[in-house]
Design a protein around this nucleic acid. Structure first.
Length: 542
RNA sequence: GCGCCCAUAGCUCAAUUGGAUAGAGCAACAGCCUUCUAAGCUGUAGGUUAGUGGUUCGAUUCCACUUGGGCGUACCA
């Protein structure tokens, strides 16, 4: 429907050239008595043309050439809205389109041939993924899916650091637990990793090698083993919610191939850095930021900024058209420095999209669960998946705007009941599958021959919603807002459930039953496609 | 102090780059299963969109200030 409107307006713009002055926007009005689609173009143009909106609207409508079998009625309403009413017959045509495109329905080629890199999770291997990481993981993977749907070739990338102080503390935590198992009297510092998993790793080393490593330093076997065990665990957790990274980028490699030193030299020769109090500072104030920051400590060790900048430069070197960084609000102060450091070297930072999601609050029994990795007071993502299932986890993290704090109510998530919104969608899909099975038993098959019989409100509303799907994906993706897809699917499922209660299939007149079967098959395709973007399964039975 | 994010129905949240009468789910109340899955549907009730100003044909949306919360504000990442 929208496609047709764009066509006829494009044609009209040769006659009324002022139409080219504004971006034409067609929206689905909240009120059904405002038509199927509506545009505010006349109002938008009013100021520029210094004419009355109603007058412009009248001019547009009177010059518009359109097929009366497609558009039934055009009205001008309110301060100057132009409302379009499509013919019922035309509306039904979407069913055939969905059938022919199948699992590709909703895809767009707008960004075909473009390459995107989505960096997410990026947790250092110091402990299992927590529920806190879960939001990042799920949203990142979903955004990657969405970008694929609009044509991008996407790399999913995990950036990590297995060097530095954090990892030394990790290795030493394991070492102390190991010595503890050997019966030595140890003092375990408060700021070391307190989790049980540290003891598990120490126990494994002991069981395999006895006291062989009694005198090993912390950054030898202990660190290596801890890193491997923890990383394996992280990968397993990601796999459990359907996430597969295709690039793991090690920060350490930036040192090994000299990128860090090269960058440091570059800043120096460009006179963008200076030494003070034994440290190297980047002149960020000259680049418009609030204060200069240290890039190399007086100890000679770089701060995270320098490798972060070097790392992002590799993303440009690797030729991406779009670079997406997703992280939690605790990192919100870091990215302006990194961006400034990259921009000054001539890279187009417009290609970088920084997404910041707010924190997750875990609720259990009406109480807030406080979390800290260091203190080992957390719910792991794996525990959550075990208790609720991957679908619930993915849906909960996807269903809210990332700029909102997310309340994750463990009690609701665990319930296999109508309080849990993911089942509402899956139930719609399962119901459709069930009807199709029943129909088959009665030798009833869907047909695209008599779609024009789909005239009832419940049918028409459902059909109109189906039209919106490709637009919704494109729009949601360009805004990087996965929750819109969840919202869309919920309203589609609601319209289906209404249709289900009002319109019977088995038992209806044959031609109508065939057309309705075709309709619900189309709904099934859209539900399945939408759920697959979210990474949620579409069960055949429930 | 400063920066980013947030404040919408009792609770959790939507609201198409400023649109027409602010919508869902849960909870509450009243109904609907001898017919394709009641994990569903229908109805009732629930709002000064935190507050005050401003911008304009029009503001939940944009701007300023105030209040209340989250996260930052390192020679940690």
């Amino acid at each position: 429907m929208k496609k047709y409107l764009l066509e006829i307006f494009d044609e009209l713009s040769y006659k009324l050239t002022y139409l080219k002055e504004t971006d034409l926007i067609f929206t689905v009005p909240a009120q059904s008595n405002h038509g199927d689609y509506s545009t505010n173009a006349a109002m938008m143009l009013a100021r520029a043309l210094k004419r009355k909106p109603i007058e412009i609207a009248n001019e547009i409508v009177s010059h518009l050439q359109y097929d009366k079998s497609k558009i039934e009625k055009i009205e001008i309403a309110g301060p100057g809205f132009i409302n379009f009413y499509f013919s019922k017959n035309f509306v039904t045509k979407i069913v055939a389109e969905i059938h022919s495109q199948g699992k590709n329905f909703g895809k767009s080629s707008k960004f075909a041939g473009k390459r995107a890199n989505v960096e997410f999770v990026s947790a250092n291997p110091t402990g299992p993924l927590t529920v806190g990481h879960g939001r990042n993981a799920v949203v990142g993977d979903t955004i990657a899916n969405m970008l694929e749907w609009i044509g991008y070739n996407v790399d999913r990338e995990y950036y990590f650091n297995n060097a530095g102080r954090q990892m030394r503390v990790l290795g030493d935590s394991v070492r102390l637990r190991y010595l503890e198992i050997l019966g030595e009297n140890i003092e375990f510092p408060q700021d070391y990793y307190q989790g049980e998993y540290i003891k598990d790793i120490a126990r494994k080393i002991f069981e395999e090698s006895g006291d062989k490593y009694k005198n090993e330093p912390e950054d030898g076997i202990f660190k290596q083993r801890a890193e491997k065990e923890i990383f394996d665990d992280i990968k397993k957790t990601m796999k459990n919610i359907g996430i597969e990274m295709n690039i793991f980028y090690n920060e350490h490699s930036l040192y090994e191939d000299g990128k860090i030193n090269k960058l440091l030299e570059l800043y120096k020769t460009k006179n963008l850095s200076y030494e003070k109090e034994g440290a190297v500072w980047l002149k960020l104030t000259e680049l418009g930021n609030e204060q200069d920051k240290v890039i190399v400590k007086s100890s000679g060790e770089p701060t995270y900024r320098l490798p972060d900048i070097a790392y992002h430069i590799t993303k440009f070197e690797r030729g991406y058209d779009l670079i997406v960084d997703l992280f939690g609000s605790d990192h919100n102060a870091t990215y302006p420095d990194v961006l400034a450091g990259i921009r000054v070297l001539g890279y187009d930072t417009e290609k970088i999209k920084v997404l910041i999601h707010q924190f997750v609050t875990i609720m259990s029994g009406g109480e807030v669960v406080k979390m800290s990795t260091r203190k080992a007071n957390y719910v792991t993502l794996d525990e959550l998946i075990d208790e609720t299932g991957s679908d619930v986890v993915r849906y909960f993290f996807n269903m809210r705007s990332i700029s909102s704090h997310l309340n994750f109510d463990l009690d609701v998530a665990k319930k296999q009941s109508d309080e849990n919104p993911v089942f509402y969608l899956q139930y719609a899909h399962a119901r459709i599958c069930s009807i199709i099975r029943m129909a088959e038993e009665q030798n009833l098959k869907s047909s695209l021959e008599n779609l024009k019989l789909l005239q009832k409100d419940e049918e028409q509303n459902l059909l109109k919603k189906l039209y919106e799907f490709p637009d919704e994906i494109l729009y949601s993706t360009e805004l990087f807002e996965p929750h819109r897809i969840a919202n869309y699917l919920e309203s589609l499922a609601a319209l289906f459930h209404k249709f289900y209660t009002e319109c019977r299939i088995i038992g209806s007149e044959k031609k109508l039953a065939e057309a309705r079967l075709a309709l619900i098959e189309a709904v099934k395709i859209v539900l399945r496609n939408g759920l697959s973007i979210l990474g949620v399964s579409a069960p055949e039975r429930m």
